[in-house]
Structure formats: structure tokens, C-alpha cells
């Protein structure tokens, strides 16, 4: 593997397996991340094997590992809950159905407590976010080199296992939540009501002229508060998970096999963090949507 110093090791472990479009003139690397001296003659879709290729990629690049693990874990969640929930019945529950019901009732209780209104979307949304984010967070409890090592053995240069350590993943979910916030706002207040909310608060005046003058001020303030929601939501999850993962990688980089002395207690502590961050993301989503669907 291509790392001689702890810095290289860390940087390598924080690099995603990326499939993207490189422009013409990008240097070509072989599968061991060495430059071959050639350059791409035309824009090409490639699986990056070195930093030169990675840096050349623009917006059109996909983190295959993040998307793969996120999709795998989400599908696992949906399939398990679907397969077990399909057989849910009003009789005496047993086995795994008990667990599923406990989770569902927990979410239902929280949504009933925090969301004032009726929506068919909000509870399943909360359940999906909680379980999915919990599973994605939990991936970091697997020792840092197990899966990347396996991937490397299979010939993949970069492999980042924890999807939530990728800001694209957390910000993407946060932006979806932003869309839902806007959607819920418009649904409850109408388009004009939503625009009024952005422009007529918090400063308001009886004087029409003053009111018009205050619109830009209000708009800036309200837009900032609206955009702060997804930004804080996505960055909180990313930041927490990134910091936690970095400690694991640092322990692995500096201590080799003795990392267990640090990684094990850190992992135990992170069982709490993993659950808490999943809960916080879910809870804030519910609260934001509840605020959005309130009528003034």
C-alpha cells in the first residue's frame, strides 16, 4: 500500500474510491498509483488510482465506496424491516419482530411527541433516517483496515468504508431535508405564505414603505436561518463521524497492531456517539419539519 508515513496512511484512508470524469491532459496512473508518464487525450470516465487523477476530477465524480455502502446498508435496513414487518400480526409477537416493533414504536412515540400535525411521510422518514444513519455510523466500529485491506487485496487502491465520513453523503441527506422543509412550508402556508415568512419577519412595520425597505433585511436573515438548518444538520453528523474515524485511523497509523489499546475503548465510547448522532439527525429533521408545517 502506498503509505510510508502516518500522514500518508491517514490521507490514504480518508480518500474515497472515486469513479469520475477526468478532463483531457490528466496524467495516467497505473493500479499501484505510479505515474505512467502518459496523459488522457480526451475527457474520460475512470476509477481514480492516484491523487493526480482524483484532483483532476470535477463535479462529475462518484464516491463508489460511500454510495455502495450507503446503498447496501439502506437496502439491508429496508429488506429486513420489510421482510419482518410484512408478517407483523396482531397476535403475540416473537423473535426479531419484537425488535422491529420496539424500534418502530420508539420512532412513533418521538414523532408523535415532536411533530404537531399529521403526515404520512414524517414517521417513515424518521425511521429510515434513524436506522440508516445508525447503520452507516456503525461501520466505523469495524477495525479500520479490515475492509480497506480486503479491497486492496482485491485490487482497489482507495476504499473508505464509513459513508458518513464523506461530507457528500451527510450534506446530501441534509439538502433532502431542506427540500422537505420547503415543501412542508409551502404545503402548510402556500407559496405566498412561504415567501411572506421569508420577507416579513422578524422585522415588520405598519408603514408600507418601511415594510418594503425591510424586505431585503428580513430575506437575508430568514434565508440564513433556513440554510443554517441543513448546513448544521449535515456538518454535525459529518464532523462527529469524521473526528471519531480520524482517531481510529490515527491509532492504527501510529500503533500498528497495538491500536487495540486505543481503538477498543474508543469504539465502546463510540457505540454511544453512533447512536446519539443518528438520533440527533432524526430528531432535528422531525423538529425542523414540525416547525415548517406550523401555521402562524
Amino acid at each position: 500500500m502506498a503509505y510510508d508515513t502516518p500522514k500518508d496512511y491517514i490521507q490514504h484512508h480518508l480518500t474515497n474510491l472515486t469513479y469520475g470524469k477526468v478532463p483531457a491532459g490528466t496524467p495516467v496512473c497505473d493500479s499501484s498509483a505510479n505515474l505512467t508518464g502518459e496523459v488522457y487525450q480526451a475527457p474520460t470516465w475512470i476509477l481514480a488510482t492516484c491523487y493526480d487523477e482524483l484532483e483532476a476530477m470535477g463535479f462529475w465524480a462518484f464516491h463508489v465506496d460511500s454510495l455502495g455502502w450507503a446503498g447496501f446498508l439502506g437496502t439491508l435496513f429496508i429488506l429486513v424491516f420489510w421482510a419482518v414487518g410484512r408478517r407483523a400480526h396482531a397476535g403475540v409477537p416473537a423473535g426479531f419482530l419484537n425488535f422491529i416493533e420496539v424500534v418502530v414504536e420508539f420512532i412513533e412515540g418521538i414523532v408523535k411527541g415532536a411533530f404537531h400535525g399529521s403526515s404520512k411521510l414524517i414517521a417513515p422518514l424518521a425511521l429510515t433516517i434513524f436506522c440508516w444513519v445508525f447503520m452507516m455510523n456503525s461501520m466505523k466500529l469495524i477495525p479500520v483496515d479490515f475492509l480497506p485491506g480486503t479491497a486492496h487485496w482485491l485490487g482497489l487502491e482507495y476504499f473508505k468504508v464509513v459513508p458518513v465520513v464523506d461530507p457528500n453523503v451527510t450534506m446530501s441527506m441534509a439538502l433532502c431535508v431542506l427540500l422537505l422543509i420547503i415543501g412542508f412550508s409551502i404545503k402548510s402556508k402556500g407559496v405566498l405564505g412561504f415567501i411572506a415568512e421569508l420577507t416579513m419577519h422578524p422585522f415588520s412595520s405598519k408603514n408600507i414603505l418601511l415594510k418594503i425597505l425591510l424586505i431585503p433585511v428580513n430575506l437575508v436573515l430568514e434565508l440564513a436561518s433556513l440554510l443554517a438548518k441543513p448546513l448544521s444538520l449535515g456538518l454535525r453528523l459529518f464532523g462527529n463521524m469524521f473526528a471519531g474515524e480520524l482517531v481510529f485511523i490515527l491509532a492504527a497509523a501510529l500503533m500498528g497492531v497495538w491500536q487495540i489499546a486505543v481503538a477498543w475503548p474508543w469504539a465502546v465510547f463510540h457505540i454511544l456517539v453512533v447512536t446519539l448522532q443518528a438520533f440527533v439527525f432524526m430528531m432535528l429533521t422531525v423538529v425542523y419539519l414540525s416547525l415548517a408545517s406550523e401555521k402562524h
Binding site: 474515497n16 472515486t18 469520475g20 476530477m57 470535477g58 463535479f59 462529475w60 465524480a61 462518484f62 464516491h63 460511500s66 454510495l67 450507503a70 446503498g71 439502506g74 437496502t75 435496513f77 429496508i78 411521510l121 417513515p124 422518514l125 429510515t128 433516517i129 440508516w132 459513508p163 464523506d166 457528500n168 453523503v169 450534506m171 446530501s172 441527506m173 439538502l175 433532502c176
Partner: peptide, 15 residues
């Protein structure tokens, strides 16, 4: 990058 879009599709599909 475009991972944003991919993840959004996953998210909406799962929800």
C-alpha cells in the same frame, strides 16, 4: 461532487 446526487437518490428511494 456528484456523490451528492447519488446519495440523494438513495435517500429518497429508501424513504
Amino acid at each position: 461532487n456528484a456523490t451528492l446526487l447519488g446519495q440523494a437518490i438513495w435517500f429518497l428511494a429508501f424513504v
